[in-house]
Lab assay of single mutants.
Amino acid sequence: MLDDRARMEAAKKEKVEQILAEFQLQEEDLKKVMRRMQKEMDRGLRLETHEEASVKMLPTYVRSTPEGSEVGDFLSLDLGGTNFRVMLVKVGEGEEGQWSVKTKHQMYSIPEDAMTGTAEMLFDYISECISDFLDKHQMKHKKLPLGFTFSFPVRHEDIDKGILLNWTKGFKASGAEGNNVVGLLRDAIKRRGDFEMDVVAMVNDTVATMISCYYEDHQCEVGMIVGTGCNACYMEEMQNVELVEGDEGRMCVNTEWGAFGDSGELDEFLLEYDRLVDESSANPGQQLYEKLIGGKYMGELVRLVLLRLVDENLLFHGEASEQLRTRGAFETRFVSQVESDTGDRKQIYNILSTLGLRPSTTDCDIVRRACESVSTRAAHMCSAGLAGVINRMRESRSEDVMRITVGVDGSVYKLHPSFKERFHASVRRLTPSCEITFIESEEGSGRGAALVSAVACKKACMLGQ
Rank of each mutant, 00 (worst) to 15 (best):
D3I: 09
A11E: 07
E14A: 10
K15H: 14
Q24G: 12
Q38D: 08
Q38T: 10
K39N: 14
R43Q: 09
G44S: 00
L47D: 04
E51Q: 12
E51G: 13
V55Y: 03
L58S: 02
L58K: 04
T60P: 03
S64C: 14
G68T: 14
G68R: 15
V71A: 15
S76V: 03
D78Q: 01
G80N: 03
G80V: 02
N83V: 09
F84Y: 06
M87W: 02
V91T: 07
G92Q: 03
E95D: 11
Q106S: 11
A114C: 09
M115A: 04
M115E: 07
T116Y: 02
T118A: 02
M121D: 05
L122N: 00
E128K: 11
F133R: 03
M139R: 11
H141T: 06
K143C: 07
T149S: 05
F150C: 02
P153Y: 01
V154P: 01
R155I: 07
H156K: 00
W167R: 02
W167I: 01
T168H: 02
N179H: 15
L184R: 00
L185C: 03
I189V: 07
E196G: 04
D198H: 08
T206C: 08
V207W: 07
V207H: 06
Y214T: 15
H218P: 03
H218L: 10
C220D: 08
G223Y: 02
C230A: 13
A232D: 02
E236K: 04
N240G: 11
V241D: 00
V244I: 08
D247A: 06
V253K: 04
W257T: 02
F260G: 01
G261V: 00
E265R: 13
E265Q: 00
F269D: 10
L276H: 15
E279P: 00
S281L: 03
A282T: 14
Y289C: 11
E290H: 02
K291R: 08
V305L: 10
L306I: 06
L307P: 01
L309G: 05
L309H: 00
N313V: 11
G318H: 13
Q323P: 11
Q323I: 12
R327M: 14
A329D: 15
T332K: 07
S336L: 00
S340F: 08
D341G: 09
G343P: 11
Q347W: 13
N350Y: 10
T354G: 12
G356W: 07
S360P: 14
T361K: 11
T362Q: 11
I366A: 15
E372A: 09
E372G: 10
R377S: 04
A384P: 02
G385M: 04
G388E: 06
V389M: 15
R394D: 04
R403C: 13
V408W: 01
D409L: 02
Y413F: 04
P417S: 12
S418P: 08
S418E: 09
F419H: 02
L430S: 06
T431A: 12
F438N: 03
E443R: 07
E443S: 07
G446K: 02
A449M: 01
A454G: 04
C457F: 06
Q465A: 15
